[in-house]
């Protein structure tokens, strides 16, 4: 499988973020309607504003590396999304970026570990557990699917596709849940019957990432493990230490 392994570089992450912006923009009205059931109905507009700012920030980046792109995305979420979701998305992307560190490219193994680090940061900041009807209900299964894909030895494209499927299933399952944290828990029936808006955004994000990587892979733009000297071997499991020299 190594010969077919795709590596994600800074440009790949740019394409992924731009795809996310497109997906979220196309679904902004839906996200706001979901949010209106138990929140103040502005999640779609806020997410779209953050993605637009991320797009602008990417153009101004001096160095396009996986971490710099995700860092810009984190800042855009923190500043332009606002509220609880802004903090959660910022924590996730910043956690992933920090775990990737200064690697010029990311393989499936590093991606899975970095996504796990992002989820850990989200849970540390927000304290939400699976079942609380939050982004964690999409994020946790997506990360678990990514880890499992990585252990099976799949490439990043398949890993992201598996994560997207799991995120979508997790987001859809929030329909059956009543909110336990955040403002939604005060709404009538805790928003039961409607999917969580933040979890739906996570699903859209993984779907857009999978689509973007698939397009790049099929068009021959993605770098290939066999001719990339910077490829990270699966031996370097400790992401924190190996990412910061």
């Amino acid at each position: 499988m190594n010969s077919s392994e795709v590596l994600l570089d800074g440009d790949s992450f740019c394409a992924m973020v731009v795809a996310s912006a497109d997906f979220i923009e196309a679904n902004a009205a839906l996200l706001s309607r979901l949010d209106a059931v138990s929140g103040d109905g502005d999640h779609g507009a806020n997410a779209q504003r953050a993605m637009n700012q991320a797009r602008t920030s990417l153009a101004a980046l001096e160095v396009t590396s996986p971490a710099s792109v995700l860092g810009a995305l984190a800042s855009a979420c923190a500043e332009a999304m606002g509220g609880a979701s802004g903090a959660v998305f910022a924590a996730f992307f910043a956690g992933v970026a920090d775990a990737i560190g200064d690697r010029p490219t990311v393989d499936a193994f590093v991606l899975a570990g970095s996504l796990t680090a992002g989820l850990e940061r989200v849970q540390r900041i927000g304290g939400a557990e699976p079942g609380d009807k939050t982004v964690v209900d999409a994020l946790a299964p997506a990360v678990a699917a990514a880890e499992s894909a990585s252990q099976r030895g799949t490439d990043v494209g398949e890993l992201l596709a598996a994560a997207a499927t799991a995120a979508r299933a997790g987001a859809a399952a929030t329909r059956e849940l009543a909110a336990k944290v955040g403002r939604a828990r005060y709404a009538e029936s805790g928003g039961r019957g409607t999917a969580d808006a933040g979890a739906t955004t996570i699903a859209l994000m993984f779907e857009s990432w999978a689509a973007a990587v698939d397009v790049r892979r099929c068009s021959g733009l993605a770098s290939d493990n066999s001719n990339d000297p910077s490829a990270v071997s699966p031996g370097s499991r400790d992401l924190r230490s190996s990412g910061r020299h």
């Binding site: 609880a84 802004g86 903090a87 955040g182 403002r183």
Partner: peptide, 9 residues
Amino acid sequence: AGDVMNARL
């Protein structure tokens, strides 16, 4: 929720 998370960051 939002105040706490942003404050932690």
